[in-house]
Amino acid sequence: MEKIASIDIGSNTLRLLLAEKTGEKFRALFRDREIVRLGRNFYPDRLLSAQAIKAALMVLKRFKVRAEHEGVAQFRVVGTGVLREAENALFFIDQVTRETGVLVNIIHGLEEARIMAKGVLSIFPSTYGKTVIFDLGGGSTEFVFMNDGKMDERISLPLGVVGLTEKFLISNPPRSNELESLRVHCQNILKKNLAKNDRINNIIGTAGTVTTLAAIAKNLIVYDPDQINGTVLTKETLVELSNKILSLSFDQRAELKGLEPERSDIIGAGILLVLEIMIYFSQTVLLVSDAGLLEGLILDA
């Protein structure tokens, strides 16, 4: 039995999972996360701001202290979306190592997709037929195509809720022309990069936007991964949520049960992208997995 810490340094959120691993199984000991928004105002210069770096370092120090308190023997720390693009990513990584002693591995989008799928499949081990798994993050969205439980194809697309929000949804609440521009942009990226397949049997979503939508649909006051894993969201439910969320200001959205106030500005772009993905694959039902990259990192250790 080995204690492992997995940390995901994402474009929007920093997340921690401490777990005990025995063979091919693990038991979660502790979870933590904080929205830092490393990808805030990232474009066009592709630079992490000094403020975001400082905030991220503070969170990572806290994660390290908690992990050491639990007697963790191995750290698996990865950088995704925004760190793949940042001109000053190496500076950030050097700062993390200097101040925490932790090494950060910036992983390619295809590797992120592989590890993420491993985590999702720990919750949905018996996928049948053709299944699409997607991880909708702050800086990118990863897709994994499964066929009877075997991985067929992986792809990472530049569709992240932070970037989409800053580029398209300027008004608060967003105007109809902004929403339409975002929809068209998402449709074009999907059509250009993904093969159209109307024979998909299942679609599974993971990461903050998708799990938040499940939490809102369930009116969760306290977020609970066990209540999120396996949640079924219908297209009808998501359309209703979309109409409601997009009509509200950021402050009004922050009052919704299940929605972290720090996500109030980006949840609009997130739900629109989720719906466009479902429409593209002709799906009326979305399965939700809280498990994803963090769990995959533990299982892949």
Rank of each mutant, 00 (worst) to 15 (best):
N201C: 04
K235N: 10
E178A: 10
A195Y: 09
F168I: 04
E178H: 14
F145L: 10
S171R: 01
N243E: 14
L159M: 15
E262Y: 06
Q187Y: 13
Y223F: 14
E180K: 02
S156D: 09
Q252M: 07
I228F: 05
K244W: 02
D152C: 08
D226R: 14
E236H: 03
S249P: 01
E236W: 04
L179N: 05
I155K: 15
G270W: 08
N243Y: 04
D251W: 05
I204S: 06
K167A: 10
L256M: 09
N219V: 11
L164A: 11
S171M: 09
F250V: 15
G268R: 00
I267G: 05
K196L: 12
A215M: 13
A269T: 07
G230N: 00
L241W: 04
L238G: 00
E178K: 02
K150C: 11
R199W: 13
I189R: 09
I271C: 03
S247L: 03
K196M: 05
I203V: 04
V222A: 04
L194C: 06
V162A: 00
V210M: 07
N202F: 13
K191V: 03
V222H: 11
N188H: 08
C186Y: 05
E153N: 12
L194E: 12
D265M: 01
A215K: 08
P173D: 12
L273C: 08
N193I: 07
K167W: 07
N177H: 15
I228C: 08
T212W: 12
M146H: 09
D148A: 15
R263I: 00
K257R: 12
Q252S: 13
I189F: 10
L182D: 01
T211S: 05
S171V: 07
T231Y: 05
N229S: 03
E236Y: 11
K218L: 13
K235A: 03
G208C: 03
Q227R: 13
K257F: 13
S242N: 08
D265A: 02
I170W: 06
L182F: 02
K192S: 13
T165W: 02
T237M: 10
A269Q: 07
K244G: 03
D251G: 01
N188Y: 04
N197L: 04
N243P: 08
V184W: 04
L182M: 07
D251M: 07
K218E: 08
Q187P: 07
Q252W: 05
N202S: 09
V210A: 00
S176H: 15
K218P: 05
G268E: 04
K257Y: 10
R183G: 03
N193L: 09
E166M: 14
S242H: 09
K150Q: 07
I200E: 02
R253G: 02
